[in-house]
Amino acid sequence: MSAGWLARRLLLALFAAFGVSVLVFALIRLVPGDVVTNLIGLEGNVSPEQQAEMRRLFGLDQPIPVQFGTWLGALLHGDLGVSLRTARPVFTDLMLRFPVTLELTVLALLMALLIGVPLGVTAALNRGKAADVLSSSFVLIGLAAPEFWLALLLILLLSLTWRVFPPNGFVPLPESLGQNLRSLFLPSLALSLGLAAAVTRIVRASLLEVLGQDYVRTARAKGLRERVVVYRHAMRNALIPVVTVVGLQVGSLLGGAVIIEQIFGLPGVGRYALEGINLRDYPVVQGAVLFIAVSFVLVNVLVDVLYLLIDRRVVFS
Rank of each mutant, 00 (worst) to 15 (best):
L193N: 00
L39F: 13
L189C: 10
V294R: 00
V305L: 15
G194W: 01
L195A: 01
V258N: 09
G247Q: 09
G287W: 01
L14I: 12
R280Q: 15
G81Y: 00
Q62I: 05
G78T: 06
L84G: 03
G265L: 03
T218A: 15
M54H: 13
L114Y: 03
A238C: 07
S295G: 14
L308W: 05
R8H: 12
L254I: 08
G73R: 10
F165C: 10
P187D: 12
V294K: 00
S192Y: 03
A234N: 05
L23Y: 03
H233K: 06
L10H: 04
L253S: 06
H77K: 11
T244P: 10
G287H: 03
A293T: 12
L114E: 02
L114W: 07
L143Y: 01
V230T: 13
V299S: 03
A131L: 12
A112Y: 00
L134A: 14
L30F: 04
V24M: 04
P89E: 13
A131V: 10
A257E: 02
Y307E: 05
I277N: 10
M235C: 07
L104E: 05
L184S: 08
L84W: 13
H233Q: 09
E209P: 02
N300F: 13
L207T: 04
V171W: 05
S137K: 08
L248Y: 03
V303P: 06
A238G: 08
R225Q: 09
L184M: 10
D61M: 10
G44M: 10
V284P: 02
A205R: 02
A145N: 04
T161F: 00
N38S: 09
D281G: 06
F170S: 01
V90T: 06
E147I: 10
S2G: 14
Y231L: 15
V100S: 03
L109G: 01
I202R: 05
V20M: 03
L266T: 10
G69V: 11
K222N: 11
I202L: 11
N45P: 13
S176V: 12
V284R: 05
L274I: 13
E275H: 06
G178C: 01
A108N: 04
E43A: 14
G128T: 07
L84C: 04
L207M: 06
K129T: 07
L298I: 15
N45S: 14
L42Q: 14
F91V: 09
A221L: 14
D311R: 03
P89Q: 13
N45T: 15
Y282W: 03
A190Y: 05
S188K: 11
D93M: 12
L109V: 11
V36P: 12
L173T: 01
L75F: 04
V46C: 05
P172T: 13
V66T: 14
K222D: 12
F148I: 08
M111A: 11
L104P: 05
R163K: 07
S295P: 04
N278W: 07
A190E: 05
